[in-house]
């Protein structure tokens, strides 16, 4: 009986904390990677990045609708996964168009990073308008296919436990896709000539030029990689929850927080930061009362909710962590670029 209590507590924790945090963390990690790569290579904090996420997701939704109306589906998988590559191409092309028409001018002027950042605010406005204009500001669900891998009820019956574990297929898809994307990215950066030249350019621009690296090519590759990462992150988030432009815009700050907490400019830091932020948000706002009820003898049972912070502050947690990191260790967990 004692053991059962323990297992129930663990299942409870897995169901409400670990699984959701793992999938949100993976989404955040991908998004942060795209932000960090833009920062590392193009040297500015891109305030429009969350809206690129909206844009990419919107493109995916449009392609999904197209496929659905044509009767194409991916079986038990969501149709959006089929639409994703096409949406990435559209997003990357639009990124490159914006780069040509907006950013490249300031790059040639060798403008300061802060100027590019202000420019990205302008791009942010335009993207928000474009997305809202095309698909509207409302909440949209675009998930189809098999919804659950493990359902709470089945789990309970099968193991004879009081607590159930739900694993949505989107959560598993998120973790797998994110892992594949991260591994490919790190392989690309560490092992390929193009990836190495990107790191070299990010590290020392002038010397990269002296070595014959073509900066324009690096810039193009950077936008393409960023589009792949941000669109994938947006689609995974939207499949898991739903798509709404304003919600996506609000992800900008957790993204920045993750980038800085991990160590800005460092891809590994971005991944770590993404998971740190996601786990903190969920662990700090989860009410542990039931968890302790299982673990502790009746006499010690907690009276309150056993919640560190009210869920109202979920959104603020990333900034609180950000502020703490800025005070205690401004370079981030993995030492990033020098501040």
């Amino acid at each position: 009986m004692e053991n059962f209590e323990f297992i129930n507590a663990m299942v409870l924790l897995a169901n409400f904390v670990i699984v959701p945090a793992l999938s949100y963390g993976s989404q955040l990690a991908l998004a942060t990677l795209s932000l960090t790569i833009i920062y590392g290579v193009l040297r500015f904090s891109n305030f429009a990045q969350a809206d690129w996420m909206s844009f990419g997701t919107m493109a995916t939704i449009l392609f999904t609708w197209l496929f659905q109306s044509a009767g194409i589906s991916a079986g038990i998988l969501p149709t959006a996964l089929l639409a994703l590559p096409f949406a990435i191409i559209v997003t990357a092309l639009f990124c490159l168009l914006i780069d040509r028409s907006v950013y490249s001018f300031y790059r040639k002027q060798k403008s300061q990073p802060i100027v590019l950042m202000i420019v990205s605010v302008g791009v942010m406005f335009i993207l928000q308008a474009v997305v809202r204009f095309i698909i509207g500001p409302n909440d949209r669900k675009f998930f189809d296919g098999e919804k659950y891998i493990v359902h709470a009820l089945d789990f309970k019956n099968y193991f004879g436990l009081a607590e159930g574990l739900t694993i949505k297929s989107t959560q598993l898809i998120t973790v797998i896709v994110a892992l594949v994307a991260m591994i490919s990215l790190f392989y690309f950066l560490q092992k390929t000539k193009l990836g190495k030249s990107m790191r070299a350019y990010s590290n020392n621009e002038d010397l990269a030029l002296l070595s014959g690296i073509n900066p324009e090519k690096i810039v193009i590759v950077t936008w393409i990689i960023s589009s792949i990462l941000i669109t994938t992150a947006g689609v995974l988030y939207g499949l898991d929850k739903s798509f709404k432009p304003f919600t996506y815009f609000n992800l900008l700050l957790p993204m920045f927080a993750a980038a800085i907490v991990g160590g800005i400019g460092s891809p590994i830091g971005a991944v770590i930061g993404g998971y740190v932020i996601a786990f903190s948000e969920i662990t700090l706002t989860y009410a542990y009362k039931k968890f302790f009820v299982y673990l502790l003898p009746e006499s010690l049972e907690p009276s309150g909710l056993m919640q560190v912070l009210s869920t109202d502050y979920k959104f603020a947690i990333s900034f609180i962590i950000l502020v703490i990191v800025l005070i205690v260790r401004p370079t981030g967990i993995v030492r990033g670029k020098i501040i």
Binding site: I114, M117, L253, V323, L326
Partner: peptide, 17 residues
């Protein structure tokens, strides 16, 4: 004490708090 764009991000976050 932070660099300019960090300041922007930090203040944006604090205003959300």
């Amino acid at each position: 004490r932070l660099r300019s764009d960090y300041l922007a991000i930090a203040t944006l976050g604090i205003s959300e708090i």
